[in-house]
């Protein structure tokens, strides 16, 4: 090399020259910790209602569960003790499972088409996928209600479980497409070319290379779809008829005071979901460290 590095003394002289003043450093320190401190406050704010939900699951309440009246294990011992609450939970889980599977399959296929192919009508398809996400839920709920009442009822499909599932698949679909599409786009197309170059037919290329690589995206999309479906109230409220989902049960009950059993179930769902997510993270990090050894 024809260039030589500057002598060490010059380097250190430069770093002293650039060292910020004490006041400046204090300011920087404060700025750094401002972000972290406010982040912690925001996280506490996010958890506050969850803490309330948890606390009031132990409330020994009478007719309404609004004001603290005393501690009891009663609601945790029999979460299904209130009529309808566990039925609505089962309905929500069923709706969530079916909608997630269908929306994830259809959405993944669409995402593959959108990234991997050129075709007439691609930008129209893009709009069709985007607009449902930009439409307020209440408008979708209203529109679905009119078509179900005025159209589907005539062919024997009344408001209920089926119409809830149809609607949930619809609004989950766009979110699945967007999530999976991002994953496929981040995939180096050369990796698929390499598979073909190494004698993999298009089918083998998909199942041996493409699919395993986009699987995390598909699983993420499925999780998103399930949580959207499980927690949806506004659209469900329009299209459910007499069927009760868990959010709908809670909403209806909220007028008289939500029974603490609902808090038990709501908080348990929270714990299960967090354990699943943390567990998945833990498994993947253990797997990664195992490979490193």
């Amino acid at each position: 090399m024809s260039t030589t590095s500057p002598p060490a003394s010059a380097t250190s002289a430069r770093s002293t020259a650039y060292r910020p003043s004490a006041a400046k450093r204090a300011q920087v320190w404060l700025a750094n910790h401002f972000a972290i401190l406010s982040a912690i406050l925001v996280l506490l704010y996010l958890f506050l209602p969850v803490a309330y939900t948890f606390a009031f699951s132990f409330n020994d309440h009478g007719k309404t569960n609004i004001v603290w009246q005393g501690f009891t294990w009663e609601h945790w011992q029999d979460p299904c003790g209130v009529p309808g609450v566990c039925g609505s939970l089962v309905t929500s889980l069923q709706v969530g499972a079916i909608s997630t599977v269908v929306a994830t399959v259809l959405g993944t296929l669409m995402a593959l088409a959108m990234v991997r192919y050129r075709f007439r009508g691609k930008s129209a398809s893009n709009v069709l996928i985007f607009v449902p996400m930009a439409t307020p839920e209440i408008v979708m709920g209203a529109a679905l209600l009119t078509i179900f009442v005025q159209g589907f009822a005539n062919i024997g499909i009344d408001l209920g479980f089926t119409t809830i599932v149809f609607s949930h698949i619809m609004f989950c679909l766009s979110f699945v497409v967007v999530t999976v599409r991002a994953r496929i786009q981040s995939l180096d197309p050369r990796i698929e070319e390499a598979a073909q170059d190494l004698y993999a037919s298009p089918m083998q290329t998909f199942w041996k290379v493409t699919f395993p690589l986009i699987l995390p995206g598909i699983l993420g999309a499925a999780m998103l779809a399930f949580s959207l479906s499980f927690d949806d109230f506004i659209i469900t409220n329009f299209v459910s008829g007499n069927e009760n989902t868990f959010p709908k049960f809670v909403y209806v009950a909220s007028r008289r005071g939500i029974p603490a059993e609902a808090n038990v179930i709501g908080f348990s769902m929270f714990v299960i979901a967090v354990l699943l997510v943390v567990g998945a993270q833990f498994v993947s990090s253990v797997r990664a460290s195992k490979v490193k050894e």
Partner: peptide
């Protein structure tokens, strides 16, 4: 391949 394209 350029940038190797190993299967990750």
């Amino acid at each position: 391949f350029q940038s190797y394209a190993l299967f990750p």
